[in-house]
Amino acid sequence: MAKNSSPEGRAPSTRQLRVGELIRRTLSDALQRGDIHDPDLNRMSITVGEVRVTPDLQIATCFVLPLGGKGGDEAIAALKRNKYELRRLVGKVTKLKMTPDLRFLIDKTYDQMDATAAMFADARVQADLIKPDDTE
């Protein structure tokens, strides 16, 4: 099989993007309203930044971040403990034949954005970005 024909190399389909966004909104709403019967999870403020769904819609990887970025391990543990209740809520909303298995990871997007901003602020990088005036 050619490298470009593997599922890992393809861009997500429209259906994957729609299902991922629907799952993201469903989880965000459930966590915000406190629909899950777990006091540990309900006292945390968790942002669901993105949900990526596999091409066969069997697995949904949810990128989450607790408010302030602290307590990520506790948030992941609480979400994993309540995975089946969250999955049931997702199943009600998505109405898919099979509800995807939910996997939770810490969203590192904000850390990467901060690192990129710091890199662009570095004097050496600024010197590379500034080009001498071109005479035309």
Score class of each variant (00 low, 15 high):
40 D>C: 03
62 C>I: 05
38 D>W: 02
108 K>P: 01
38 D>M: 04
34 G>F: 01
33 R>S: 06
71 G>L: 09
103 R>K: 15
49 G>L: 01
107 D>H: 09
23 I>C: 09
92 K>P: 00
100 P>T: 10
38 D>R: 06
3 K>S: 13
52 R>N: 04
48 V>F: 11
108 K>Q: 14
35 D>T: 14
98 M>Y: 15
96 L>E: 11
74 E>K: 08
29 D>R: 06
16 Q>T: 00
12 P>E: 09
17 L>E: 07
20 G>R: 00
83 K>A: 15
66 P>N: 07
106 I>P: 03
89 L>R: 12
81 R>E: 04
25 R>F: 12
18 R>H: 13
10 R>K: 11
107 D>G: 11
46 I>D: 05
24 R>T: 09
107 D>Q: 07
76 I>A: 06
39 P>T: 15
87 R>T: 08
60 A>M: 01
50 E>G: 00
109 T>Y: 11
50 E>P: 05
23 I>Q: 04
54 T>A: 13
107 D>C: 11
33 R>P: 01
38 D>T: 06
45 S>I: 15
23 I>H: 07
62 C>L: 11
18 R>D: 13
100 P>L: 05
104 F>P: 02
63 F>S: 13
58 Q>W: 03
47 T>D: 10
7 P>D: 08
6 S>R: 12
77 A>S: 11
60 A>D: 09
18 R>P: 00
73 D>E: 15
13 S>T: 15
51 V>R: 09
70 K>I: 12
13 S>P: 04
12 P>N: 09
87 R>W: 08
30 A>I: 06
7 P>Y: 02
3 K>H: 10
16 Q>A: 10
14 T>G: 14
111 D>S: 08
58 Q>Y: 03
27 L>W: 05
33 R>K: 09
17 L>Y: 01
75 A>Q: 00
108 K>S: 12
82 N>G: 06
73 D>S: 07
85 E>S: 11
15 R>K: 14
96 L>N: 02
69 G>Q: 14
43 R>W: 09
41 L>R: 01
65 L>K: 08
62 C>P: 07
41 L>I: 11
48 V>R: 09
76 I>N: 05
32 Q>H: 11
80 K>D: 12
56 D>W: 06
109 T>H: 08
81 R>F: 02
71 G>Y: 07
14 T>R: 15
73 D>I: 01
98 M>I: 14
33 R>G: 00
79 L>R: 05
104 F>D: 12
55 P>D: 03
110 Y>A: 15
30 A>W: 02
30 A>H: 00
33 R>H: 06
58 Q>A: 15
81 R>T: 05
87 R>H: 10
101 D>C: 00
13 S>R: 04
68 G>R: 02
8 E>A: 15
14 T>D: 14
83 K>N: 14
92 K>I: 08
102 L>F: 10
37 H>V: 08
69 G>W: 09
9 G>E: 10
10 R>I: 03
52 R>V: 04
60 A>G: 09
23 I>M: 06
26 T>P: 03
53 V>E: 07
18 R>W: 01
43 R>P: 01
55 P>V: 01
81 R>Q: 02
49 G>R: 06
12 P>R: 04
111 D>M: 12
98 M>F: 15
82 N>H: 05
52 R>H: 05
106 I>M: 13
